[in-house]
Design a protein around this nucleic acid. Sequence first.
DNA 1: TCCTTCATTTGACTCGATCAAGAAAAGGGG
DNA 2: CCCCTTTTCTTGATCGAGTCAAATGAAGGA
Lengths: 157, 157
Amino acid sequence: METTWQDQLRTVGLRVTRPRLSVLQVLAERPHADVDTIVTAARAVHPTLSPQAVYGVLEALVAGGLARRIEPAGAPALFELRVGDNHHHLVCRSCGAVADVDCTVGAAPCLTPSDTAGFVVDEAEVVFWGLCRECRPGPPAVTAQVLQNDNRGGAHA
Amino acid sequence: METTWQDQLRTVGLRVTRPRLSVLQVLAERPHADVDTIVTAARAVHPTLSPQAVYGVLEALVAGGLARRIEPAGAPALFELRVGDNHHHLVCRSCGAVADVDCTVGAAPCLTPSDTAGFVVDEAEVVFWGLCRECRPGPPAVTAQVLQNDNRGGAHA
DNA sequence: TCCTTCATTTGACTCGATCAAGAAAAGGGG
DNA sequence: CCCCTTTTCTTGATCGAGTCAAATGAAGGA
């Protein structure tokens, strides 16, 4: 990916500004960052950056297709630069850590509901909930069990 | 469905109260209701019910496994009584309408992440985004027989 | 360089949800 | 049937994420 941030911004019709470059830089280093994290990190190179500016920048980036917003339940929105590929997320219930998961099928949407109830579906969003390595209780007994498949509510394989 | 709300509440160790019965009643009639809707509707039978009480009731119901909370991105939380079965949701991008979707039988490749990045996954959450029948830009003429005589472009916000 | 347009700053504000203290009620024991 | 303990509800303050609006400032084409 040798296209610069500047090129990418211009390609989608956005002006090249310091706040935007700062935010892109932060997102490149820290995928799945929330607004607060972005503001804090971006201030390393742009000390006067305001939170509202970051909201504006992110809105523009998402609208321009340069960034994607994800909103795990009960947490502030997160942003990532991985766009255009169909991937999903693992979210830690304890610490909120997020990891990418490639969709095993490839094309979006990777799932097709059996009955759409009259809806025209354009996206299937998948979130895997669990515990990350650090938050997992007990000694790291590395079992192969990956998806707890109980027959009541929640998970399904 | 001969188990009464009272029985269900007692079964999970919750006291039987008027606010709880009211909320259960509302949820039975209106699946996928948000807190505001529940408060308004429940006041028909319990006029002094406070929003905070509803928050408390819902928290207790969810903790007791009698209700489930869903949080579509960009919308207040919704609650439903369908628990224990594995189903997902269709959400309308335009009006926010929600419909249940039974989990696709058989092939659900995306529900087993290929690489869990060290996470222990306990739930896979799926949300299908699209447009509901009312919000869909006009289907090819009036050829839809499934659709009863509704005023197209229906007022639904 | 000028000038128009788009971005950012600043500050107020909305909305959903949570927290805390006291009053009310549920429901088991006497 | 009443009392007492515990849970639950009410009232009101507070919080956090996100939005709105007016005014200043930068981007970049003419």
